[in-house]
Design a protein around this nucleic acid. Structure first.
Lengths: 169, 169
DNA sequence: ATTAAATTTCAATAATTACTGAAAGTTTAA
DNA sequence: TTAAACTTTCAGTAATTATTGAAATTTAAT
């Protein structure tokens, strides 16, 4: 396999991984491109390499910046913006975890709490109890997951390795 | 909030959670319905409650069975199939982790290994080295995640709690 | 201030993904 | 073995999600 081919394959695989987990495929592909590129890239570089439109490139680069997976840098004498990809895959994972936790886990936790405000009447007292019990157990589980992810997203790599070693042993 | 309303809200929220993580929304909604239903349900019950077509209900129930989130049960004297939802949310999580690990993490790991077979020429020797180094570190990370998830998916709840307590403290 | 370069926005369009419903297939009871 | 009950399949359609490209806006050099 040639280098160009290998790079292409990585970009495609990373894109598929993303889209299977609810991350826009193009965004994941742009991220992959930055992961394997040492140099700074401009929006135009991304457009050319991935053959995508300006609007698409711009929007997804913005989101990657928000997620903390790209950094904006400037080249003196150049007017346009350049970007550099975060290369530390552990840091990348932590940032992705944090963002998705906020965007998806928290709304679910809020809903679960709200749902438990359900009122019961004489008629359905038992059914309501059973229901809130179930919601309670799901909430408890979700909160544990939430706490775990918070811990992970705040920890450094060595911590993670230590834990992993203990667990897998 | 009334019970019916609360149930509806749970089904919607669970559906959204699923679709944000790459799980078909209807499938997640059907799963939610089973989570809050003590009784056995038939395909028709699901169709009626969620207002979806027979084909849709059938296909998603099949997948939920494959994932181990529903069980097929029969009622004597009744010809049609009935299903019961797995209620243990910890077990549900473990099964989902296992399935998605197989479906999404493993293909990425395979791709990463394949990618590292890249050949270098005299010209691009250094670039290839840099590239394979990066692929190597991503692969290492992914394998750790894979092992961790395998451990999680094989462990019981008390193990998880113990770890969680240690971690969060 | 002017203007050219660069970035952002967003309505229109394309691509992807999910759903429907009817027909085909299967099972079971008599 | 027939036929009714039930399940599965899948081509056509609908809904959702992503992308384009050109116009509007912003930025920065002169």
């Amino acid at each position: 396999m040639e280098l160009a081919e290998a790079k292409e394959k990585f970009i495609q695989s990373w894109g598929n991984l993303g889209s299977n987990w609810g991350v826009n495929k193009t965004m994941a592909q742009i991220h992959a491109l930055f992961l394997i590129t040492e140099e700074l890239l401009s929006t135009e570089d991304v457009m050319d390499t991935l053959q995508i439109s300006r609007g698409n490139a711009n929007m997804n680069i913005r989101t990657l910046l928000e997620w903390g997976l790209l950094y904006k840098e400037s080249i003196k004498g150049e007017r346009k913006e350049f970007f550099r990809g975060e290369k530390d895959i552990w840091l990348v994972a932590r940032r992705v975890v944090r963002i998705r936790q906020r965007q998806e886990l928290e709304p679910m936790l809020n809903a679960l709490q709200e749902i438990q405000q359900v009122e019961s009447t004489e008629k359905n007292k038992e059914e309501v109890e059973k229901f809130t019990e179930r919601m309670q157990s799901i909430e408890q589980f979700s909160e544990s997951a939430d706490k775990f992810l918070t811990k992970v997203s705040k920890s450094d790599e060595s911590w993670f390795w230590k834990i992993l070693m203990k667990l897998i042993k």
